[in-house]
């Protein structure tokens, strides 16, 4: 059962990563990116942090490196795991509030988008990361509120 759950999680996150690439290719916004995969990663690392998800992000990273980029194999896996551990460390050691959440989200995106290219230090790229943080954090909050509202548990 655990293996099946693990496999389903891997498929779900790989699909989410693929969706993220497709969305950003079609919409092609200059100022921000839509990052459903990163939102998923943020939820896991700050709300449901567990060893169970290591294999999920390891496989997702290998999938991305092997099929979508010229990165060295394992680069994205390491990046995803470092992002997760860092985001969890910031949130776990502070009192929970929206500003801290947003700051953690921005730091997470900054590491998540790291590339060994000159573009990483380009001011336009940094600007894009900041705008993306705000937009995606807003999407995360909407998702969080929606998930949090369990209609079956609501009192009539």
């Amino acid at each position: 059962m655990i293996y099946l759950r693990n496999l389903l999680s891997i498929i779900a996150f790989v699909f989410l990563l693929f969706i993220e690439l497709i969305i950003n290719t079609i919409l092609n916004f200059d100022y921000f990116l839509i990052m459903p995969f990163f939102i998923g990663m943020f939820i896991i690392s700050t709300r449901r942090f567990s060893n169970f998800y290591i294999s999920v992000f390891l496989v997702a990273g290998i999938y991305y490196d092997a099929l979508y980029s010229s990165n060295i194999l394992g680069f994205s896996s390491a990046k995803f795991l470092i992002t997760m551990i860092l985001m969890n460390f910031i949130v776990a050691n502070q009192q929970n509030n929206t500003y801290l959440d947003l700051a953690t989200f921005t730091v997470g995106i900054f590491i998540y988008k790291f590339t060994y290219s000159l573009e990483y230090l380009n001011p336009e790229f940094l600007y894009q990361i900041l705008i993306s943080s705000l937009v995606n954090y807003f999407l995360f909050r909407i998702l969080n509120i929606t998930i949090g509202k369990n209609v079956l548990k609501q009192k009539i």
Binding site: G74, F75, I85
Partner: peptide, 14 residues
């Protein structure tokens, strides 16, 4: 600790 082990594993693949 387990996360760090897997990060090192990723680095070894790299």
């Amino acid at each position: 600790i387990i996360f760090v082990i897997f990060i090192l594993f990723s680095f070894s693949i790299m």
